[in-house]
Design a protein around this nucleic acid. Structure first.
Lengths: 144, 144
DNA sequence: AGTGAAAATTGGAATAATTCCAATTTAAGA
DNA sequence: TCTTAAATTGGAATTATTCCAATTTTCACT
């Protein structure tokens, strides 16, 4: 009925498609990533999830994340050597990493640009995935 | 006189520009990265460097790499959570990571594409750097 | 050439994200 | 209900990297 419900269903289906089970831990981790799309780390997800399910372990959070990634429900995002962050945006997009605030924003990637990118590959090379990360800063209110 | 010599000079100059010293360790690490542009890890660089200078330590290799990066002589390249790799190519380029062989190739990035990429940022966002990584595979000789 | 201060190197300990593992718990089907 | 495979759990292990304190080197200035 609710939007949340809708997402749970899609989770259950996607898991079933891969022959996996829809456990409470997996649902919770998924809903938590969906609730605030701020690219949390595994530790942050663990912290958020614990209040609703105090018995969950960090290992399980890692396991769930791996499962969600395998089912293409979540993407892992890496900036340099920093802890991996997790992103529920499945559309093709780049990431903007703000050096000053540490925040991460999604930047939609137009189809034509994606196509242009693939064209710069030498013949014989096939890209299954492209990761694009901008690093910089956003003008703050008051900047001029 | 030699090409190698030329590079050493540029190293010394770039270091001096930043008020840093051109030590034998820094020269050697830099020459080693330049000798085979195969994006080695710190451990690999350490192994290659030890034969010419057995007394060098891994900590020094890390220190030298950090220095070279600060002087813009070398770029750090990260693929997912794998160990950082080091790249002496200073021109704007993307990286192609071959899943099958593990090899990394540079892919030159045309100016117009770079410009097009910067245009997708929302107003107010400024990118100081863009990292682009393709993951995929290269057709092998014999593939059809 | 000699000296002193700052910078660089070194080995080893410390850190931290992630993975591994063996034991227990849970779930789904016969 | 029973069986079996899958999932979860806590803690140990791994590993790239950073930190640290002690030593060595370098450079500028006499």
């Amino acid at each position: 009925m609710s939007t949340t419900h809708h997402h749970s269903d899609s989770l259950a289906h996607k898991l079933a498609d891969s022959g996996l089970r829809a456990t409470p831990q997996r649902e919770l981790v998924y809903q938590t990533i969906l609730a605030r799309r701020d690219h949390p780390t595994a530790d942050e997800i663990f912290a958020r999830v614990k209040s609703a399910m105090p018995s969950i372990s960090l290992a399980t959070v890692y396991n769930c994340l791996e499962t969600l990634i395998d089912c293409d429900l979540v993407r892992a995002v890496n900036f340099d050597r920093a802890p991996t962050r997790y992103c529920p945006n499945l559309r093709p997009h780049a990431h903007f990493h703000d050096k000053e605030t540490g925040a991460t924003h999604d930047v939609d990637l137009p189809d034509d640009l994606l196509a242009a990118l693939k064209k710069i590959l030498p013949p014989g090379y096939t890209a299954d995935a492209i990761d694009i990360t901008f690093r910089g800063h956003a003008a703050r209110a008051g900047d001029n």
